[in-house]
């Protein structure tokens, strides 16, 4: 069937395929993202104390601004020890992990992500008392950023 198509149509079809959202199966799954977080910070996390700032709809998945902040006084006695960010629809779920000392003064980090397709971005904070806190945001991506 394909060989009957003119070359130009094939190239156009290939380009269209490259631009279209990739099928979910070729990326990480929400279960893989959860498993990764369990390995990084085992235990049950509660919703709260973590805030994710990211656009709900992004045109360009190659450069998606993200700000993650965690409510914490960042003192010796009470601070954020680690912060993990995962995305459950990229080829691999890991995005970044941070380890903080109280010298940070404030637990807030910003970065730019690649998002291959529409998916959920999850952040998990591990406090100095061992408690785990999480938040997540669903992001709709019009053009994936995996090949960028």
């Amino acid at each position: 069937m394909a060989e009957t198509l003119p070359r130009r149509a094939l190239v156009a079809a290939g380009l269209a395929a490259a631009m279209a959202p990739l099928p979910r199966e070729s990326g990480a799954t929400p279960a893989e993202a959860r498993d990764l977080l369990q390995r990084l910070a085992p235990g049950a996390a509660r919703e709260g104390r973590v805030a994710l700032r990211i656009e709900a709809i992004v045109d360009n998945g190659a450069q998606v601004p993200l700000v993650v902040s965690v409510e914490s006084p960042m003192t010796e006695a009470d601070h954020v020890r680690a912060l993990h960010v995962v995305a459950d629809g990229n080829p691999a779920p890991g995005v970044a992990s941070f380890a903080f000392t109280p010298r940070a003064g404030r637990c807030e980090v910003s970065m730019r992500l690649r998002l291959a397709r529409s998916q959920r971005v999850v952040a998990l904070a591990e406090m100095s008392d061992g408690s785990l806190w999480t938040a997540s945001r669903e992001v709709t991506v019009t053009v994936g950023g995996c090949s960028a």
Binding site: V64, A92, A96, F98, T101, R103, A104, M111, L113, L115
Partner: peptide
């Protein structure tokens, strides 16, 4: 102050 591990999902 801080250390970070970056994965390929961090943009160019």
């Amino acid at each position: 102050v801080m250390r970070m591990r970056l994965e390929p999902a961090i943009a160019a």
